[in-house]
Design a protein around this nucleic acid. Structure first.
Length: 563
DNA sequence: GATTAAATAT
DNA sequence: CATATTTAAT
């Protein structure tokens, strides 16, 4: 990190050897003058170089100034202008420094709050000299988590709360997102010893990359390391991949072995498999999931709000290859929600066009036709109506675009995806200003979107994808994704994803023979290519309707109700 | 209170 | 590396 200069480094080296480092620059923040003085004196005694400040804002300014480089911050919790937690939060967000909290209050909650927010330690006032002696270890551990074990200090009644996991953090990885000013080469970035690694959110893009890699390597030969290499996403660690791979495999297993999990799917399997479509199906706990025969489609929000079709039909050993979704929840990534949200807000193309000549009325009627006249359907209908009339549904706000909301929890999203990221938990969920603030409406939006989507899906079957894609098609770039059938042709499938989605490339593979995918035959290939614009719609509608007719809906209803 | 994604441990 | 367990989130 920035604070580590040449001799700093040496210092750390010394520290690693357990040599007591001298001259660590400590910024002490406390509105209590006496405390400040005492701390200063004590720190001096241990050869630290303390700088004292009486308020958090000034402290922050000093820290931000950059000029002054500090190795460690000690801050009181209770301060008038800005409390220690806030300061801690900001520090976490903007820089990479260990912070020790100080408070007269040794209430467990307070202590935990500090720790949870990323404090390296929590000391209860009054602080004794010996407690300060080894604070350098925090610096060291912060910088190099694996180097040291425990901070040795036999504290009095000081509540040292240090997650055991802390010392165990291995692997560099740690990509601290925000403002990771850290320059140094990897190594330097450490993880807050006291913290869990930031949670990685597997966005659709990421997953697509993941799938690409898998496809390239072959499911059976895919190992985390290779996948990681192929993905070439630098914020991921091998562990992240391993974890995801594990989940993915479990998903595949489940899906393959337990067809019953989705009656609908079974019934339509043939369609499904070939299809281009993702079937929306079930969901658990009120969540919809998209199942597809294709790899890249996912629902973006918990309700399967978005469908993407992109599909490389590359088949992995089994048709399911791609579909990630798993139980209804897997794809809950919200990464691009914004786009989707935007899509529904009504700007851009008049929704009407989405349906390509099909009167809205019909659409509207058809969809809910699934006889449930439950509020959901109605709601949807309402929404759809609204939208189709070019209105922006009241509750859909565009402002929501570009926010990353992960059901309230924030996660790290690789920068390259240009998402705001947050540290594992630093960003207090409720006050995480910079990136995810004011999400209040977001939840609502998502909720609102759900019905809408369902509506489209409701159409039965699935369609989610289709329904959505239709929408997408109309307003998005219509990038084409080349899909190579195992066999020959490269059929062009429109990538219905919103522009920002990373299109799947690849696929040609032909992986295992299974790849049949005659699929598009019916629709796609036979479709007059020149239909260009309508192609998609046609295709979507086709599916939609065929599905609708194929099924009497009862099945779907059942599914729906199941929820 | 159950379920899950992702992290972490084995 | 695979698999199991834990954690933190809904």
């Amino acid at each position: 990190m920035a604070t580590m200069g040449g001799d700093r480094r040496q210092m750390m080296v010394d520290a690693a050897e357990d040599k007591f480092p001298e001259g660590l620059r400590v910024l002490v923040v406390d509105d209590d003058r006496v405390c400040l003085k005492v701390l200063e004196a004590l720190l001096h005694r241990w050869k630290y170089l303390p700088t004292t400040v009486m308020d958090a804002k000034t402290a922050l300014r000093m820290l931000m100034a950059g000029k002054q480089q500090f190795d460690l911050v000690i801050t009181d919790v209770c301060m008038p202008d800005m409390d220690g937690f806030k300061l801690l939060e900001l520090i976490r967000l903007e820089m990479d420094l260990p912070v020790i909290m100080l408070s007269v209050d040794c209430d467990k909650k307070v202590v935990m709050k500090g720790i949870d927010h990323g404090a390296s330690d929590f000391m209860v006032k009054p602080v004794c000299a010996h407690e300060l002696k080894n604070i350098w270890q925090h610096v060291q551990r912060w910088r190099n988590p694996k180097a040291i074990g425990h901070i040795s200090d036999h504290d009095s009644d000081v509540q040292r709360v240090q997650p055991t996991t802390a010392d165990k953090s291995k692997y560099s990885g740690n990509k601290r997102n925000v403002g990771d000013d850290s320059n140094e080469n990897n190594e330097s970035t450490h993880i807050s010893s006291t913290h869990r690694k930031p949670r990685v959110t597997w966005t659709i893009e990421l997953h697509n990359k993941f799938l690409e890699a898998i496809n390239q390597i072959g499911l059976d030969r895919a190992v985390p390391k290779k996948v990681l290499e192929l993905m070439n996403v630098d914020c991921l660690s091998r562990e992240n991949i391993a974890s995801h791979l594990q989940k993915y495999r479990l998903y595949l297993k489940r899906v393959n072995s337990n067809p019953s999990s989705d009656a609908y799917e079974r019934r339509n399997s043939s369609y499904n498999m070939n299809n281009k479509g993702n079937l929306m199906h079930n969901h658990e706990h009120g969540r919809w999931s998209v199942s597809s025969g294709d790899t890249s489609s996912w629902s973006t929000n918990n309700y399967g709000a978005t469908g993407h079709v992109a599909s490389p039909m590359n088949i992995q050993s089994n048709f399911y290859m791609g579909s990630y979704l798993h139980d209804g929840r897997m794809p809950r990534y919200v990464g691009k929600q914004p786009s989707d949200a935007r899509r529904f807000t009504g700007f851009g193309d008049p929704p009407v066009s989405l349906y390509n000549n099909i009167p809205n009325e019909i659409m509207l009627d058809e969809f809910p036709s699934c006889n449930y006249s439950n509020s959901y359907a109605d709601l949807m209908r309402g929404k759809l109506m609204e939208i189709s009339k070019g209105k922006t549904p009241s509750n859909l706000q565009s402002s929501f675009a570009n926010r990353i909301v992960d059901g309230g929890r924030s996660s790290l999203v690789p920068p390259q995806e240009s998402y705001a990221m947050s540290t594992g938990r630093l960003p207090l969920q409720n006050e995480m200003t910079p990136f995810i603030s004011n999400t209040t409406s977001v939840g609502g939006i998502i909720e609102q979107m759900a019905p809408f989507n369902m509506a489209s899906n409701t159409s039965s079957v699935g369609t989610m994808l289709n329904g959505s894609s239709t929408l997408d098609a109309s307003r998005t770039s219509m990038k084409d994704t080349h899909v190579v059938n195992s066999e020959r042709t490269t059929s062009m499938l429109h990538n219905l994803q919103p522009d920002d989605f990373v299109p799947l490339t690849q696929l040609l593979d032909g992986g295992d023979g299974a790849s049949i995918v005659p699929m598009q035959e019916g629709t796609l290939e036979q479709q007059p290519l020149n239909d260009q614009l309508n192609e998609i719609n046609a295709f979507s509608m086709d599916d939609m309707f065929s599905n609708m007719h194929m099924e009497d809906f009862t099945g779907d209803d059942a599914i729906v109700e199941e929820a």
